[in-house]
Every structure is written in structure tokens, then in C-alpha cells.
């Protein structure tokens, strides 16, 4: 009986959380047209979430690409088809690794920054003060951050993919001596527009999901140090799980 009750409670909590996020999204979407009229606020947030994440994204992309180059070369060598390393690396990065790893890194860097910033604004009465100045914090604070993050994510994904391919090339061509012409020509011949579209769609969807979770958790954080910490942790955990779930769904649909 106890287990049934706990399951029922958990189901109730989950439903309430989904309802809360949905209502929040509705309010947020309602404020987006007004927020778009002030592009300077959005540009500042693209800088905060995107430009300031560039170093970590580029560094990680280089190493992910390099590892992909090492493992790809080792595997392909067994079949005598190491020239296909460009294709394997590019498809892996464009369709899967680029969007997913970017989303996970984004959640850890920019997502937590967004959630903790909003949570601290809540804890220090800044959001209430904005409301008391007859300004809707959803319009002035949350919507620009959400839009800025949603714009930044696909851009970061593209940067990740480009640097990742460079990493594959660095290991495959420069280190193992894979023929450069074969590397690039096979890549260009095999990677189709649909593959790129899949990567871009994933980047956009993950951007929406990660940023929604970050601003929701931050905005609704319990106004204490513990509450802000919990909101930050939840942002990373939920964003990561949601990213991988959405990744599976999009991949299944676009196969």
C-alpha cells in the first residue's frame, strides 16, 4: 500500500511539475513579442550565454573530435577503410555528438549561470522589486535570457561541429597520415543536407529545452541559498536527461 501511495504521490508531483512548466512556457511565450522589440537586451544575453561559453565549447569540441579521430581510425583500420574517417567523424559530429555534447556543456555552463542568476535575483528581492516598479520580470528579465539562449545554442552547436571535425582531421590526417583529399572528399560526398538539418534541428530543440528548464528552475527557485543550489542542480540534471530523451525521439523520427 505504501509503495502504491508513494507512486501516486510521485505521479502527482510529476504531473504538477509538467503543468507548472507548461503554464510558465505559456506566460513566457506571451512575453516574447514584447521582448523582441528590445534587441539590445537579447544581444547582451546571446553574449552572456553564447560568447562566454565559446572557450569551453571549442576546447571540448577539439578533444571530442580528437577522440573520435583516434577511435574511428582504429576501427576503420581493421576494415582497411581508414579513408572513410572524414565521413564517420563528420556524420557522428553533425548528427549526434555536436548537438548532444553542446547541449550538455551548455546546461553545465550557461544553464546553471541562468538558473543561479535568476534564483539569486529571487532570493535578494530583485524580481519582486522589478514587479513593484510595475515591470513584468517575465518580459524584462526572463524572456530576453530565454531568447538569447535559444539563439546561442544552435550557433554553439555549429562551432562545436566545426572544431570537432578539425579535431578528427588533426588526428586522422596530421597524426595517422590518412589521405587529406580522401578525408575531405568522402566527407563532402557522404554528408547530405538532411544530416545537417538533423543536427541543426537537434541544436534548436535542445536549445529550447535547456533554456526553458534553466529559466523555469531559476525563476521558481526557493529564495534561500539551499533553494538556489537545488535549482542549479536540477537545471543540469533535468536538462541532461531531457536532452538525451529528445535526442532519441528526434533521431527515431528523422531516420
Amino acid at each position: 500500500m505504501k509503495i502504491v501511495r508513494e507512486l501516486a504521490d510521485s505521479a502527482g508531483d510529476f504531473t504538477a511539475a509538467v503543468g507548472g512548466v507548461t503554464l510558465f512556457l505559456g506566460r513566457l511565450l506571451g512575453q516574447i513579442p514584447a521582448a523582441l522589440l528590445r534587441p539590445s537586451l537579447i544581444v547582451a544575453q546571446v553574449h552572456n550565454t553564447g560568447a562566454l561559453s565559446l572557450v569551453i565549447i571549442m576546447t571540448c569540441a577539439l578533444f571530442v573530435g580528437a577522440v573520435l579521430g583516434l577511435l574511428g581510425y582504429d576501427t576503420l583500420l581493421r576494415f582497411g577503410s581508414e579513408d572513410a574517417l572524414g565521413t564517420v567523424g563528420a556524420l557522428g559530429l553533425v548528427k549526434e555528438l555536436g548537438p548532444v555534447v553542446t547541449a550538455l556543456l551548455y546546461a553545465g555552463r550557461a544553464g546553471t549561470a541562468l538558473a543561479s542568476e535568476l534564483g539569486l535575483m529571487r532570493a535578494t528581492d530583485q524580481l519582486t522589486a522589478i514587479e513593484m516598479m510595475a515591470v513584468d520580470p517575465m518580459r524584462r528579465v526572463v524572456a530576453p535570457r530565454f531568447i538569447g539562449g535559444v539563439i546561442a545554442m544552435p550557433l554553439l552547436t555549429v562551432v562545436f561541429i566545426a572544431i570537432g571535425i578539425f579535431g578528427v582531421q588533426l588526428v586522422g590526417v596530421q597524426n595517422f597520415g590518412v589521405d587529406s583529399a580522401s578525408f575531405w572528399s568522402q566527407m563532402r560526398a557522404s554528408v547530405e543536407l538532411n544530416d545537417i538539418a538533423e543536427g541543426v534541428i537537434k541544436g534548436c530543440v535542445f536549445g529550447l529545452a535547456c533554456n526553458l528548464i534553466a529559466v523555469y528552475e531559476g525563476y521558481n527557485a526557493i529564495p534561500t541559498a539551499e533553494g538556489v543550489g537545488r535549482a542549479t542542480t536540477r537545471t543540469v540534471v533535468i536538462s541532461a536527461v531531457l536532452t538525451l530523451m529528445l535526442d532519441y525521439m528526434i533521431t527515431a523520427v528523422m531516420l
Binding site: T124, D125, Q126, T128, A129, M133, A134, V135, D136
Partner: peptide, 22 residues
């Protein structure tokens, strides 16, 4: 909400911690 915001323009509130935008 809209009416409330219109009313709040007639009010000012000083918070205990100032609540300045950091």
C-alpha cells in the same frame, strides 16, 4: 495583472536589502 501594474506605478517600495539590480 495589467490594472495592478498600473496601480503599482503610483506606489514605491523600499526593500529591507535595497534590492538593487546587481
Amino acid at each position: 495583472t495589467r490594472e495592478l501594474y498600473a496601480l503599482r506605478r503610483r506606489m514605491g517600495m523600499l526593500f529591507q536589502n535595497g534590492a538593487l539590480l546587481t
